[in-house]
Write a protein that binds this DNA or RNA. Structure first.
Length: 305
DNA sequence: AACCGACTCAACCGCCTGCCT
DNA sequence: TAGGCAGGCGGTTGAGTCGGT
């Protein structure tokens, strides 16, 4: 019953790959492919590595057309906008950035991009985000107006629409109507000319929602630009739990608010964030105000310093 | 030159889902 | 149907590097 263990944990080598190992792995896969079995691959090519390690090495380092480092502003923006929307779903974010791996993006976010948003030079970048998100949505309360990163004139109308979708009492919406409303909510998260749009696939998210209790996406392979030569992004599919009436469809703003909370927490550790696009408020510890968030938000577009 | 702390990123770990037996 | 593995994923680690003192 079942399958054989993937590898002898005691017999496999760990740590950095040698150039010889890289050459063997790359040469074999380029000639023969993986054979749809990573676990047996090390034996086939005669290296003492775990199959998972081979897979990781190939996907993150050896496979063709990979880009390392040198993230562009556009890529920064895509990463940020997707992180805001779906959270730390790195593989999905990576699928929208040809040549980038989830590991690269994860590292980049954790070590640089997040700091970039918080740093002095990040101020200009963040302002660019504000400009591009100027029609974005967020919740607000009177006490936190100064930290409302994506405040805009459409907030109220979007919030109304959003409430209509997520409010269980409003479930009577026909699919067509829900789709229309959804598009209006998500529309602010698209921009020209690259057309990053988030289209809802209602069914696929239920299990993921329960599992992750966070935003979820299904496969975007059918419409993403992975592997194409076209640098422009095409429509992505954002999934929302539509059929599960036990769970509110909060993931869209969940991701957004987690982003806020995370950034804010890194500025001031003692703040408490209660999220809610549907009427709840974000509560900020008073200590937070000592950090002058308004200056953090309201910096010039380009910091020439 | 030596030391030390911060930073980077390749690699590993552990968990989950789907598939196979 | 149950048990167990492969593949995939996000989180974490730690060796190497860099910069400041």
């Amino acid at each position: 019953m079942g399958r054989a263990p993937c590898c002898d944990k005691m017999a496999v080598k760990k740590g950095p790959w040698s150039t010889e190992e890289d050459a063997v792995l790359k040469s074999y896969i380029e000639k023969h492919g993986t054979g749809n079995n990573w676990i047996s691959l090390p034996q086939r090519i005669g290296i003492k590595r775990c199959g998972k390690s081979c897979r990781l090495r190939w996907l993150n380092y050896l496979r063709p057309n990979l880009k390392h480092g040198g993230f562009t502003d556009e890529e920064d923006y895509i990463i940020c906008s997707l992180y805001i929307t779906i959270g730390s779903r790195w593989s999905i974010i990576a699928s929208q950035l040809p040549g980038r791996t989830d590991n690269d993006i994860k590292n980049y976010w954790n070590t640089r991009l997040k700091k970039k948003l918080l740093s002095k030079q990040g101020k200009a970048f963040h302002q660019q985000l504000n400009v591009k998100f100027e029609r974005g949505t967020t919740s607000s309360s009177s006490s936190q107006n100064q930290i409302q990163m994506f405040h805009d004139e459409n907030t109220k109308s979007n919030q109304t629409l959003y409430n209509q979708v997520v409010d269980p009492s409003m479930r009577a919406f026909a699919m067509e109507e829900q789709s229309m409303i959804k598009n209006q909510i998500l529309e602010p998260f698209s921009w020209e000319p690259n057309k990053v749009l988030f289209d809802v696939d209602y069914d696929a998210a239920a299990s993921s929602y329960h599992h992750h209790a966070s935003p979820s996406l299904n496969s975007m392979s059918s419409t993403s630009s992975i592997g194409t030569n076209n640098s422009s992004l095409q429509m992505s599919h954002y999934t929302v739990n539509h059929n599960d009436h036990d769970q509110p469809d909060m993931f869209f703003m969940d991701g957004f608010e987690n982003f806020q909370a995370e950034l804010f927490d890194e500025i001031a550790n003692n703040n408490t964030v209660e999220n809610g696009f549907d009427g709840t408020e974000i509560l900020i510890n008073n200590n937070y105000l000592d950090h002058d968030i308004s200056s953090f938000i309201d910096y010039p577009l380009y910091d020439n310093e």
